Simulated assay, not measured.
Amino acid sequence: MLPRTTAKRASSGIDYSGLAIPKGGRKVGRIKPGRYENANHRKDVAGMICCLWQLGECKGPVSGHHLLIPWVGIRGGSRRSDDRNLVPFCHHHHVGDDGVHKRGDEEAFFREKTGYPEYGRILSERIWRDSPFWEPVP
């Protein structure tokens, strides 16, 4: 006999095999696509200098910022983008008074700081492709 959740899903006629189950276990009726994670890449990005260091405004330690508008994968529903969408930000540019999270509009933030609203997406893709921890992701 099939487990209860599998039986319900099987009776709906939809094949859910191959879809990722969100962290925290199964939630019937709510399946989210998997989120790519790479702890080594996160640590590598956090060890870089702030991507806006040329502005001379940097303060505090550097951490990886998951893009609000990713170049690959999805985001939304209180979920951050996957680890391929990381850029290094100092505390000031990340969550400080002039940070991207205070602004809320990532494209406007990058337009103001660099002149290019897609700067974060282009940079994070380059960082991922040059990463020593790059791996093919299906």
Score class of each variant (00 low, 15 high):
residue 9 R to V: 14
residue 9 R to D: 11
residue 10 A to D: 04
residue 10 A to Q: 08
residue 11 S to N: 05
residue 12 S to N: 05
residue 14 I to A: 12
residue 16 Y to I: 10
residue 16 Y to C: 06
residue 17 S to D: 10
residue 18 G to P: 01
residue 18 G to W: 12
residue 19 L to A: 03
residue 20 A to C: 08
residue 20 A to Q: 09
residue 23 K to V: 02
residue 24 G to A: 02
residue 26 R to T: 13
residue 26 R to Q: 14
residue 26 R to K: 14
residue 27 K to L: 07
residue 28 V to E: 11
residue 30 R to K: 15
residue 31 I to T: 15
residue 34 G to W: 06
residue 34 G to A: 15
residue 34 G to N: 08
residue 35 R to G: 05
residue 36 Y to R: 10
residue 36 Y to C: 08
residue 38 N to K: 08
residue 38 N to I: 08
residue 39 A to P: 06
residue 39 A to W: 09
residue 39 A to S: 07
residue 40 N to P: 00
residue 41 H to Q: 02
residue 42 R to E: 03
residue 42 R to N: 02
residue 44 D to T: 02
residue 44 D to M: 07
residue 44 D to K: 02
residue 45 V to A: 03
residue 45 V to H: 03
residue 46 A to F: 05
residue 47 G to P: 00
residue 47 G to T: 02
residue 50 C to M: 07
residue 51 C to E: 09
residue 52 L to A: 11
residue 53 W to Y: 15
residue 53 W to I: 13
residue 57 E to F: 01
residue 57 E to H: 04
residue 57 E to G: 00
residue 58 C to S: 10
residue 58 C to Y: 01
residue 58 C to K: 00
residue 59 K to R: 11
residue 59 K to G: 01
residue 59 K to A: 06
residue 59 K to H: 07
residue 62 V to E: 01
residue 62 V to Y: 01
residue 62 V to S: 01
residue 63 S to V: 08
residue 63 S to W: 06
residue 63 S to N: 11
residue 63 S to M: 07
residue 65 H to S: 08
residue 66 H to V: 11
residue 67 L to N: 07
residue 67 L to V: 05
residue 67 L to T: 04
residue 68 L to V: 09
residue 68 L to W: 07
residue 69 I to E: 11
residue 69 I to G: 02
residue 70 P to G: 13
residue 72 V to D: 12
residue 73 G to A: 12
residue 74 I to S: 15
residue 74 I to E: 13
residue 74 I to K: 15
residue 74 I to V: 15
residue 76 G to P: 01
residue 78 S to C: 06
residue 80 R to G: 01
residue 81 S to N: 12
residue 82 D to R: 07
residue 85 N to T: 10
residue 86 L to R: 02
residue 87 V to N: 05
residue 88 P to N: 08
residue 88 P to I: 04
residue 88 P to M: 07
residue 90 C to S: 03
residue 90 C to V: 00
residue 90 C to G: 00
residue 92 H to G: 00
residue 92 H to T: 02
residue 93 H to N: 03
residue 97 D to S: 09
residue 98 D to Q: 14
residue 99 G to F: 13
residue 99 G to V: 09
residue 99 G to L: 13
residue 100 V to E: 04
residue 100 V to W: 05
residue 101 H to R: 11
residue 102 K to D: 05
residue 102 K to W: 08
residue 103 R to A: 11
residue 106 E to Y: 09
residue 107 E to S: 10
residue 109 F to V: 08
residue 111 R to E: 09
residue 111 R to A: 13
residue 112 E to M: 12
residue 113 K to I: 03
residue 113 K to C: 06
residue 115 G to F: 03
residue 115 G to L: 03
residue 117 P to S: 07
residue 118 E to K: 15
residue 118 E to L: 15
residue 119 Y to M: 05
residue 119 Y to D: 01
residue 119 Y to C: 04
residue 120 G to D: 01
residue 121 R to F: 09
residue 122 I to F: 12
residue 123 L to V: 09
residue 123 L to M: 03
residue 124 S to V: 14
residue 125 E to W: 14
residue 125 E to M: 15
residue 126 R to W: 13
residue 126 R to I: 15
residue 127 I to E: 05
residue 128 W to L: 06
residue 128 W to I: 08
residue 128 W to C: 05
residue 129 R to F: 15
residue 130 D to V: 02
residue 131 S to Q: 07
residue 131 S to D: 03
residue 134 W to E: 04
residue 134 W to R: 13
residue 135 E to I: 14
residue 135 E to T: 14
